[in-house]
Design a protein around this nucleic acid. Structure first.
Lengths: 370, 370
DNA sequence: CAACGCTGAGTAAGCGCTCTCTCACCTTTG
DNA sequence: CAAAGGTGAGAGAGCGCTTACTCAGCGTTG
């Protein structure tokens, strides 16, 4: 261990006195480089300035602004006035550091351009905001490799995470769970991974769609499947296979879970000569509808098409889409509820899979007579 | 001013020595309450622990993890190994406080469920992430009153803000500008407010739509207008009025800027007996299309309909929508570019309004013969 | 071979808040 | 009227990092 520098007596004789003191100026010059949240003079307005100006202690300013503890009304008003005049804005990082926890949660989704996620994000954001939390969002691009590092990164900024990670591999999930991270999974149930989750009961909903189809008289369908590794896809496919007992024969063809994906996969689906096409989700179904229109295949007279999710546009496709309504706003709220309990050290609330109601619109009808 | 407490000699005699020292334990017990980012023992893993375990100083750990400065390779490897083993995750707030700036930017939009914003959010997030910034997102619900406080709130957590605030009043904007806040406005040009902005050239694009319509032979149109206070709406309407010189007579009817809004306003538009309906955006146009279909009005034979924005669904409406392609991804990137320059104290890059290309699809054609 | 860079790594001073302690000053009680 | 109990506000110790400053240990030069 080397000798102490400025604290050691002998060293003091060698160095000019006040060497340590001289650091302060260089400090402040460093800060001037960034212009974030600085006032006209290029300095950040701190709580100390407000306190000095208002003639009170920083503790009091803190109390007034946080609205906790009892403070003399006149004093409080003065503090607020000074804070407003100075344009004081608490520096979040300092607050978080002092209080020991972040006031943000992170949300990771595979594709921010997908309308499915926005209802979740919106409701989660609203719910979290009510409890004073902000929301960080990140688009993983659906890449399993970056997903974990993205989560790790967000976890250094956020108190907890809501993760919609259909693809992220189990090892990554386990690593998250192992470090005891406050993470809630959306639409993914993974046995053997100790992470709470919320999700839609995909199985029941898809079974209901199949039932709707068979009761209409369909017996041959094609399932335009989503990503093979996705839990949602697995559940939906499991339901379709189970529907064999109801007399529905189905083959699966994988498609990109997008409009383009549905559009592109339609021709291959037609080769199977089905009377119904069960799409992984509404996006895919929309693509199918567009392609069938091009091909002159009448929906629903010649072909029934079903979607999943009931995104806002499902009602306005031509014809309007028969689909399963996944209550995404509920998912967002539930996710926050669990995360909040987790952050506060409470017992995690038990939340069952959310039921999705099947909405029959105009894209499904009895199959054509043979 | 009252006398100092523990620093005063007289007081020392009264209180037991070491009174202040006793605070430490109560501190740590406070922290145990929150379970965020704590390891199995209920403690946060800090850089000190990593340093001790790896037998180096915290400075070295910091350098290794930040990847700056030169560190002995063996030492670096060991530090990384220890950090991984311990599940060390830097506490973002401490980092931000020490370095003096937040590594997040905030984005405020009036409605997260509006697909218009998806591309902006996605591209801005991607661009910012490349520079090591996270993205905080907030839904103001379009309420002008909450918008400012939401911005203020975010500014205490974020280095800067990207604001899409069609409604926020000028006073609020000025207050933001007055405090020298790093804010970039999207799709709003406000003279007299010293805040940088990026936006689409709504005027030219709408003029081009009008030109398209007049060249087709239309002379009577209805504009289904967006929010009156919105800059975008004002620009678009200004273009339509200018189109009178091209022989296009148009009246404006205000509609909610949603699918439902377009649907609901269609009947009122028809009263004017136009041959074309110019919708504020694609959402409104979709609603119009849905209502016209219900009414049995053939588009485009009996009625032309145009949208604006080219959201992903515009291509798949029936008929496919003629619209102006607003390059939203570009907007997001530009916004970040400006914000970044602002945060780094560089001169703000000059960015002109982005041109929107008009895409003629199937919802517009020559008006019916009289 | 001495004087002089370099380099790599340690030391420790804050960053701007929060919150526990502590005490001065009042208001109740016995 | 003294003792006990409240209550409001100040003091100041950190929170976990980053980074300026410092210096020991070497490799270069003249």
């Amino acid at each position: 261990m080397s000798a102490a520098h400025s604290g050691e007596v002998g060293a003091e004789a060698i160095r000019p006195p006040g060497a340590t003191v001289r650091r302060a100026p260089s400090r402040s010059s460093r800060k001037r480089e960034s212009s974030e949240s600085l006032n006209q003079n290029g300095h950040r307005v701190t709580i100390d300035q407000v306190a000095r100006e208002a003639g009170v202690s920083t503790a009091t300013v803190s109390r007034v602004l946080a609205g906790i503890g009892s403070v003399n009304a006149t004093m409080a008003a003065e503090v607020k006035r000074v804070a407003a005049t100075l344009g004081y804005r608490p520096f979040g990082a300092a607050r978080d550091l002092a209080s020991g926890h972040h006031r943000s949660i992170g949300v990771v989704v595979p594709d921010l351009a997908n309308p499915y996620f926005y209802d979740i994000i919106q409701s989660a954001q609203t719910a979290a905001a009510k409890d004073g939390y902000r929301m960080l969002i990140a688009d993983s691009g659906g890449d399993p490799a970056t997903e974990l590092s993205m989560c790790e990164d967000l976890l250094s900024q956020a108190g907890g995470l809501i993760v919609q990670s259909s693809r992220m591999d189990v090892t990554a999930l386990k690593s998250l769970a192992a470090h005891n991270s406050p993470v809630v999974l959306i639409n993914r149930v993974e046995y053997g991974v100790d992470l709470p989750h919320v999700g839609v009961d995909n199985f029941s909903a898809m079974l209901e769609i199949c039932h709707h189809l068979t009761s209409l008289g369909h017996s041959k369908a094609v399932y335009l499947a989503g990503p093979a590794s996705s839990w949602q896809n697995q559940e939906r496919w499991r339901a379709i296979q189970q529907a064999r007992m109801m007399g529905l024969e189905a083959t699966a063809i994988t498609a990109e879970p997008t409009i383009q994906g549905g559009y592109a996969a339609t021709d291959a689906a037609l080769v199977e000569r089905p009377t119904a096409i069960i799409a992984f989700n509404d996006l895919v179904a929309s693509g199918v509808l567009a392609r069938l229109r091009e091909l002159g295949v009448d929906v629903p007279k010649k072909m029934s098409v079903t979607g999943f999710d009931d995104i806002v546009f499902a009602k306005f496709t031509q014809p309007a889409l028969t689909t399963a309504v996944t209550p995404r706003a509920v998912l967002g709220e539930q996710a926050w509820k669990i995360l909040k309990a987790r952050l506060n050290g409470h017992a995690l609330p038990e939340v069952p899979l959310v039921k999705a109601e099947v909405l029959i619109r105009d894209s499904s009808a009895a199959p054509p007579e043979r």
